[in-house]
């Protein structure tokens, strides 16, 4: 469960990126929608512990700002710039980095499974530098999902993908019933698949619930 109480993010001197947001995210899947610059990605960064905030933000009742070590490995995030998320030289090695916590004799089998699940087997030995944006995005997702986080925050995970892989990635995002998904997206069809939808506008929650998409569409005309 994710709880936000009066969460505010400001950038000096006076830019307010999130303004006094309070919400409890209980649903297995939550979509955050809104225009560019509305505060969606800032909210994702708060949840991933990447940005300072005032107020309280907790995951599993652990304060995000101070509970980094307790939450490490339990919260995974796919950042919007997937290329930055890939660290190792090849696809297999990058996923292998996420599996290094496993005993050595289990790593190869786990790697094969992850590669297969994400349709990356043929790209396993390809240098990450030679991958397309969409392939990098799929690799970033595979590497994060491989750590088996309780909470997955995905910031625009399908923007660079063609229709086939957008579908594959979408299905993978929704695949686990045990994992809580927070999806930041402009893809309203994808957002509609979520159990809960939050429309963020001007750094505040403008509307929440199944009709949030309708309100958002009416707003943008």
């Amino acid at each position: 469960m994710i709880t936000l109480e009066n969460v505010t993010v400001t950038v000096k001197p006076d830019a307010v990126l999130l303004d006094d947001i309070s919400a409890t995210l209980r649903a297995p899947t939550t979509a955050i929608i809104g225009e560019n610059g509305s505060g969606k990605s800032t909210l994702a960064k708060v949840l991933a512990g990447l940005i300072d905030y005032t107020g309280s933000a907790t995951i599993h009742e652990i304060e995000i700002a101070t509970g980094g070590k307790k939450l490490a490995g339990r919260v995974g995030m796919i950042i919007a710039n997937a290329a930055a998320q890939v660290i190792m030289p090849t696809v297999a090695e990058d996923i292998g980095l996420s599996l290094r916590h496993l005993p050595k004799d289990q790593r190869d089998a786990a790697l094969e499974q992850v590669l297969e699940e994400h349709d990356l087997t043929e790209l396993a030995d390809r240098p990450a530098l030679s991958l397309s944006s969409g392939q990098l995005q799929r690799l970033a997702l595979a590497a994060v999902v491989a750590t088996n986080p309780d909470v997955l925050i995905a910031d625009e995970p399908t923007t660079m993908l063609d229709a086939r892989y957008a579908k594959l990635v979408s299905n993978q995002l929704f695949a686990s019933a045990e994992r809580q998904l927070v999806l930041i997206t402009h893809d309203l069809d994808l957002a509609a698949r979520c159990d809960d939808i939050i429309w963020v506008h001007d750094a505040k929650i403008a509307h929440r619930g199944p009709d949030a998409i309708q309100h958002y569409l009416e707003h943008i005309g």
Partner: peptide, 15 residues
């Protein structure tokens, strides 16, 4: 900008 994103990526990958 990339260095900033990599720093974020290291955090979110628990590295």
């Amino acid at each position: 900008k990339h260095a900033d994103d990599v720093a974020d990526a290291l955090v979110v990958r628990g590295l």
